[in-house]
Amino acid sequence: MSAALQATKTTKSRKHHVLPGFGLSLGFTIFWLSAVVLIPLTTLFFKTCQLGWPNFVKIVTDPEAIAAYKLSFGASFTAALINLFFGFLVAWVLGRYDFPFRKFFDSIVDLPFALPTAVAGISLAALYSDKGWIGHFLAPHNIKISYTPTGVYIALIFIGLPYVVRTIQPVLEDLEGQVEEAAESLGASRMQTFLRVLLPTLLPAAIAGFSLAFARALGEYGSVIFISNNLPFKGEIVPQLIVNELSNYDYPAATGLAVVMLVTSFVLLLLVNTIQRYASRHQEAR
């Protein structure tokens, strides 16, 4: 038996090596990945190590930095939460219902992906400014959005929406209608079917979509700076603070803050991958 196993193993491995170009393509991939991404990124950690621990702690716990973390994390989290709600709704409507121009509305969900962030930023700032189409309705009520910290939330909701929709939509479309019918015919109410049958299946995708929107919002710069007032302690997000430090030629401060942000996004990335791997294994097992 072990000989047979050995034989299948050899044919299997030989089968994969019939195709040419493995060494060349993998070699080039690793070389190019190292040159463009990995080596440059290690510079960041190398420079951080040069800072020394006390310096690093001082930089990342500076009051202005703390205020920026609060706004960045708070606004990103809130925006991702709002996106989770509306993204779920949009994914549901696009995936389940038929209505005029459905394909058109499906396409514009990707607009924030395709639109350059600077364009998104000035468009939103114009729309919500005192003279803008939405802003001029709000101005008499003394509600200001553009050039205030509120603007940060608006920009982050804009850029994060497609992540939630596009993560939930395929799972929703994959769900067999029979599952719901079965639940229904076994006497479950509509609410029970939704909460106990649909929601558990959609939960991993929802968490992944939320985390993607959150991670993207944390790193966002282009759209936010056009709509925020960018004032320290008020409307300043972490990437803006990094840019400010750079324009003061304070490279160590920028580096320290960048490492904090980078580690956070890597942890989020790891979380998303783990959830998705767990979810796909879970679904295969069923």
Binding site: T117, G222, P239, A254, A258
Partner: peptide
């Protein structure tokens, strides 16, 4: 996963 600002910073460094 990297913020665009950090990408720029890396090349500055």
């Amino acid at each position: 996963a990297v913020s665009p600002v950090i990408a720029g910073l890396v090349f500055l460094l």
